[in-house]
Amino acid sequence: MSVREKILAAIAANKPALTDLPVVDLQQVTNYEEPVAKFISTLESIGGKVYELQAIQQLEQQILQEKEEGLFVLDTFAGMEDSFSAWPATDMEPIHKAYIKGSIGVAENGAVWISESQMVNRLLPFVCQHLVLVLEKDKIVSTMHHAYRQVNTFEEGFGVFIAGPSKTADIEQSLVIGAHGARSMTLYLLDTK
């Protein structure tokens, strides 16, 4: 018997009697009356900055300006050339700021889902010094249960929920923002009305 077969046989022999899988009932979970307000306050409480935005053009202006100032700024809004997904880490490391669209926001914890096609290069949201996410206001749901019903998190090769900037409290429980990932996380809430 191979190791695999031995392990599986031992599990089959030792496992308890089959029990039912519970149903996670959305009726039994929190539903915020004002999920957008809850989302903003939660994200701010974990170190994110939130701004409201009337139109994406306003942001494009800002990006243009930052690029003119000579900052290494990238945005994936209009898609990227194919080769970007394969940029090596050494080329990614100097990126100052990255602008990425998210697909769903979660009010209870301030997390935003970003799929691989939105970030294009998997390293981008982590390696950039500053992360800027854009999210449509009507894409905010109350809890993680609602989020998983709306997005297929395994549709693409990779995806991530990001909640605020990278952080650590490994030195005496003192909170430090900016561990290995982005030092800041700013979210622009796009008005969809």
Binding site: V106, F154, G157, F158, G159, V160, I162, A163, G181
Partner: peptide, 19 residues
């Protein structure tokens, strides 16, 4: 674990990236 509502990153690995 720490009283945070969620960790900063919850990464879903599905398929290897190209190469």
């Amino acid at each position: 674990a720490t009283g945070q509502p969620i960790t900063t990153y919850s990464s879903h690995f599905h398929k290897p990236r190209k190469g």
